[in-house]
Write a protein that binds this DNA or RNA. Structure first.
Lengths: 127, 127
DNA sequence: AGAACGTGAAACCAAATGGTTTCATAATAA
DNA sequence: TTATTATGAAACCATTTGGTTTCACGTTCT
């Protein structure tokens, strides 16, 4: 099941919207159908539904059909990608070494390398 | 001297774009001027410059004028907001899906898990 | 069966986004 | 001084995004 998710929207994009972050929080509490969910928001039911779809495509919520309603609930796993991404940067505030490094670099007249191709992950980070 | 950060763009939005995430990574390595930065990307210098501005508005990079160039570098503090946001959801995979998750991808034996969420490594969001 | 409910799809729209080209300006080099 | 370099600002453009209204369809309740 590890690779069953083929995220059309990535997590970063999914959580960029405040409404969607709010939805995640709401759906972490309990599973809810669309109409109940949308009653919490100042927008139409359809708009909420579209946000839910984007979250679903990112794998952050699951849909379950129950009778005539569709119930949504939080699916936290994809957030691990975020966590992993963040972990890379923790060294910058956990280590004061980073600050030291910058200090040293500031003393240098010229930094040599702009050849370093740090960027390897411009596209998708499909896990 | 905590940054006079009045984020015009929020962090969530800033990191939503893959190019901007790549920029953060690049600028974590070293401070760089715009032209050097943009040589790594398939878009115009101006486009890169705009991305940098968005990152700067989110407080994620700082600009420093040196002669005729503007050097940018990573400013990791605002990422703590992200970390804090994420921390809320950790309980969800620490509880139910923990076993499954751990099976799929063993990350770090970090948090003691099923206790509280409180991650002591970051006391403040206030910088 | 017919009415009411819960939802998704479609068509549409305004604004934001990511990109471009062109131009102006400040700093350095000749 | 004049030319060149590094950059930002402005105008512009196509696509995406977040929202709406309308409509069709399956499910449940009389």
């Amino acid at each position: 099941m590890a690779g069953s998710a083929a995220p059309k929207h990535d997590v970063f994009q999914a959580i960029a919207d405040p409404t969607r972050r709010s939805l995640l929080k709401l759906l972490g509490e309990e599973e809810l159908p669309v109409t109940a969910i949308s009653s919490h928001y100042p927008m139409t039911r359809t708009a909420v539904s579209k946000h839910l779809r984007i979250l679903a495509e990112a794998g952050l919520v699951s849909e379950r059909r129950v009778g005539r309603e569709t119930r949504y609930r939080l699916e936290p796993e994809p957030l691990q990608e975020l966590k992993k991404w963040l972990a890379y940067y923790e060294r910058f505030w956990n280590n004061k070494l980073a600050a030291l490094k910058r200090f040293v670099e500031d003393d240098e007249p010229e930094a040599p390398a702009d050849r370093t191709i740090v960027d390897t992950s411009m596209g998708k980070t499909d896990l």
